[in-house]
């Protein structure tokens, strides 16, 4: 199996460990990732709040880069915000030729062109549909059977495009987590919003959402996420959230490929565990 790989800006900075662990996991599964050469920002949530055409032209540039070579048929995207932006291009230009031609007019400035036909896929889509839990469990060397994990999906890999899971009660992570031997923390917060960029611009609102998710995760050994924005919100503001909720809300927050990598027997360094901000002593003891 082979996919184009679009890491996105976060995976070069605050979500370094997501990039490290995704590559390590895929390599362990003998899946080839072809990183898009000269990829640029997808526009995040900034471009959609600024201009409609810009919000499509920025992700389209990356799809055009993939179309230029002929190495794979699908683009793998680990960041949910990047995924949705790229997916919007696939979905919207697929049925609107006028829009496609406008985007191509913009891309001409970069000597690029989008035709369509490449499929954009979230990392969780590929992990749950193309790889599946049986293949994961075959490679498990370190069973995590004394751990309970809270699967946190966030929003934009599930909605608005329903591609691989139920958009309200997602379950696609469960077989993968169970394949490591770990148990699933039963909760209803898996598909709820983490506040996204409110933690930067409207912290008083964002902290309510973060605290309610961390509260509901109590009893789990770790929260597992598939989005850099969700991860940083849940990982980086635990002290603030604890003060806000007047209770201790410290918990380990991992990316899904980090957890799977641990079960494969990869070292902490190989999955970038040194980059996570909150790894509890209790969690380390269970490793």
């Amino acid at each position: 199996m082979k996919y184009y790989y679009y890491p996105g800006c976060s995976l070069e900075g605050t979500a370094k460990e997501y990039d490290i662990s995704t590559r390590a996991f895929m390599s362990a599964m003998e899946i080839e990732l072809v990183e898009l050469e000269d990829w640029t920002c997808c526009g995040a949530s900034a471009a959609p709040a600024t201009g409609n055409l810009l919000s499509l032209a920025l992700p389209a540039r990356n799809i055009a880069l993939a179309e230029k070579t002929n190495a794979a048929k699908e683009i793998l995207v680990p960041c949910s915000a990047c995924y949705l932006n790229l997916k919007q291009v696939e979905k919207k230009t697929g049925k609107d030729t006028e829009l496609l031609s406008k985007i191509n007019t913009i891309l001409e400035e970069e000597h690029l062109h989008v035709t369509g036909g490449l499929r954009v896929r979230h990392l969780l889509d590929v992990l749950s549909k193309d790889i599946d839990a049986a293949a994961v469990s075959q490679r498990v060397q370190r069973s995590l059977n004394d751990m309970t994990i809270a699967p946190y999906y966030g929003c934009q890999c599930l909605r608005p495009y329903i591609e691989f899971d139920d958009p309200e009660t997602p379950r696609s992570m469960e077989p993968l987590i169970e394949a490591t031997g770990a148990k699933i923390h039963a909760w209803s917060k898996g598909s709820k919003c983490c506040g996204a960029s409110h933690m930067n611009t409207q912290m008083d609102v964002g902290i309510e959402l973060v605290a309610s998710i961390l509260k509901a995760a109590k009893g789990a050994d770790a929260i597992v996420t598939v989005c850099p924005m969700c991860q940083v919100n849940l990982d980086a503001y635990q002290k603030k959230a604890s003060r806000f909720a007047k209770e201790d809300l410290d918990i380990t927050v991992l990316y899904l490929p980090q957890l799977l990598g641990l079960a494969f027997g990869l070292t902490e360094k190989e999955i970038g565990l040194n980059y996570n901000l909150a790894v509890s002593d209790g969690f380390r003891k269970k490793l």
Binding site: C155, R159, P160, C193, V205
Partner: peptide, 27 residues
């Protein structure tokens, strides 16, 4: 204060693109 979670878009019984329209208001 719309954080683009797309819950309203998913559930709107009239099928309206509410989240996208929130973005257009931001624009």
């Amino acid at each position: 204060l719309c954080s683009a979670c797309y819950y309203c878009t998913l559930r709107c019984p009239r099928g309206l693109p509410l989240t996208e329209t929130m973005e257009e208001l931001k624009q």
